[in-house]
Amino acid sequence: MGLPNESGDLLSKMDSDASRRLFPLRFYESHLSISTRPDGRPLKSAREAFVGPGDVASADGSAMTKIGSTTMLAAIKMEIMTPSADKPDEGSIAVEFYMPPICSPLVRPGRPAEIAPVISKQLYDTIMSSGMIDLKELSLISGKAAWMVYLDIYCLDADGALFDAALYSAAAAFSFLQIPVVSLSEEGRLTIIPEEGNGNKSDKDVVNKGKRKLTISSLPFSLTCGLHKNYILPDPTSEEETLMETFVTVVLNSSGHLVSLYKPGGPVLAQTSTIQDCIALTRQRMTDLQKSLDEAITEMKVD
């Protein structure tokens, strides 16, 4: 059994960068044994999250979020659609998550990331399950016109916790959303009234006067924890994600309800106590995220 011992000696002699590349699991576990993570965080702490308006000129609402190095840019564009016959009073939401090649060395132009459509679907399910948006509010003219909300989220830098950052940016984008005021033209199409001077358009043409913002009943916030042996490690970086294979994503909304508990398999089985710990960590995280988002919203209102 000479080999493991040899590598053990080698590990202590070589510098940390080399050991990180050659023996990633050992490097990682040596950190875990002293209750810290390679980027210096204590074991149970998540990275700091930043949120701000996205400054996308052509979008009706946009937000940029950063969790550690993971950066997401979300933009919402609203277009008009004819509602379906069985739901004449409801609009619709379409969520698309993109991972352009700039974000990660694993994504190539011809080979899109496998995880992108999965996260798209997960985001769509979470947004619909959380009851954040009432589709009936998106209706303009019953049976004839309703809003179609296109939410595009671009990952600009992928460093783990992609779903968390994407959901946070979606929540922020909906909070910053300003619905354009539209009026009905003679041909039956709806067009946006420009902000200045609606002198020649009479008030009764305006279809949604006064409904500039969506009422958001409760925002969902999430935290992904990696499970490795007996450790629960919230908010893994991409390096940690390659070492751990089991993840639990807990989504809670502001009223404390569980919106989604997503554990897609993985070698580590989750005990009930583990799940309870993850939910507790998510609750803690939620208060921080909510605070940052509220600050950003008030700052935007001041502007």
């Binding site: 564009k77 609203m78 277009e79 008009i80 659609m81 004819t82 379906s84 619709s92 379409a94 179609m148 354009p180 539209v182 199409r189 709806l190 067009t191 946006i192 420009p194």
Partner: peptide, 17 residues
Amino acid sequence: TGKGSATPATYSPSPTS
């Protein structure tokens, strides 16, 4: 609901280009 249904045709309400 919504599985498999094509996204309905939409148009943008911006003033004509």
